[in-house]
Computed example of a mutant assay.
Amino acid sequence: MTDRHILFETRDDGIAVLTLNRPDFLNSFSHEMISDWHRYLIEFDENPDLNVLIVTAKGRAFSAGGDIKALAKGEGFIGEPKEDLWSNAFKRKEALWGNIQKIALKMEEIDKPVLSCINGAAIGAGLDMALMCDIRFCAEHAKLGEGYINLGLVPGDGGGYFLPKLVGIPKALEMLWTGDRIKTEEALRIGLVDYVYPAEEIFDRTMDFANVLNSKPQQTVRMMKRLVKSHHKVDLRTHLDMVSSHMAVVTDTNEYIELLEQMKKS
């Protein structure tokens, strides 16, 4: 249904596309959007026929993050709430922990590749949702920024965790403290995004990369992601112990055996 705030397409080739679909509100968050987003992440993760996820959006923005109109009405940053999310400190904490932060935690669990296709402006929590993805493709006209400071807010969905991992602590603090929006040339230079293309090409380029990943040995792809994502949490001895276990497993898969046979014949 096109009026849903999240669209989820699963293709026969193993690629899934999750699309933010609240363009009249610059794809700012709603209760329905957050709920469905989390539900579809679980579906993608648990479906053995799906290998790669693309996260993108409809309209001229990727996401403005929190719903400013809802915030101005005293309802909190999630539009069209189904319950009181803002009347006291406990409810405001639960509005994060029980909603948007569930997405960050689920994204951290997923071993399959997740690509963000940033089709337009990504501000505040909208940008942070792209930072949770493994690789970011960005339309060259998009403006990116952490706007929390302009409302006296802190990055509630994990931006303070993900941003310094990509751009370093000084640049992360600069972006958070100033709230300035940056152009894609600068975003590419500092490592905030990985690829920049014209708007009319951005989705196709992201899909091209998804197809490349989809053609690789999937168990190996997932184990590589797990190793890289955990590198800062473990010491070298633990990492090498993990990778030796992973090596033992992948060399017992049909994918490895088939690729080895192909190499022998080449």
Rank of each mutant, 00 (worst) to 15 (best):
G160E: 05
R92K: 14
M242E: 11
R222D: 00
D194V: 07
A248G: 15
P81S: 06
K106P: 06
V55H: 07
P170Q: 04
T56K: 01
P164L: 01
M175P: 01
L96R: 13
G120S: 04
R136A: 09
I100S: 05
G147D: 05
F25P: 00
K69R: 14
D84L: 12
G147C: 10
E185C: 09
S87W: 06
L105R: 15
N47A: 11
I118S: 01
Q101L: 11
S87G: 03
C138H: 04
A57F: 08
M224F: 13
N214D: 03
H141D: 12
V114L: 02
L26C: 13
T19K: 05
T238G: 04
S87Y: 07
P217D: 10
E201F: 08
E140R: 12
T253G: 07
F29C: 00
G156V: 08
M224Y: 10
V249M: 11
I202V: 13
A199T: 13
K171M: 13
Y195S: 09
K112E: 10
A104Y: 14
E109I: 07
I110W: 07
R4S: 12
E46V: 05
M107P: 06
H246P: 00
E109W: 00
Y256W: 13
G160F: 04
A61M: 12
A122D: 04
I190E: 03
F25I: 06
M33I: 06
K58N: 13
P81T: 01
L259S: 12
F62D: 02
R92H: 04
T220N: 00
T238M: 06
E43W: 10
N211M: 09
D134F: 07
I257K: 15
F203T: 09
V249C: 07
F77K: 08
L259Y: 12
E94S: 11
K58P: 05
P155I: 09
A199Q: 11
S215L: 06
K93D: 10
R222C: 07
I42L: 11
E80L: 11
I68S: 00
D157A: 12
G152C: 05
P23S: 06
I15D: 03
S35E: 14
Y256L: 00
L71Y: 15
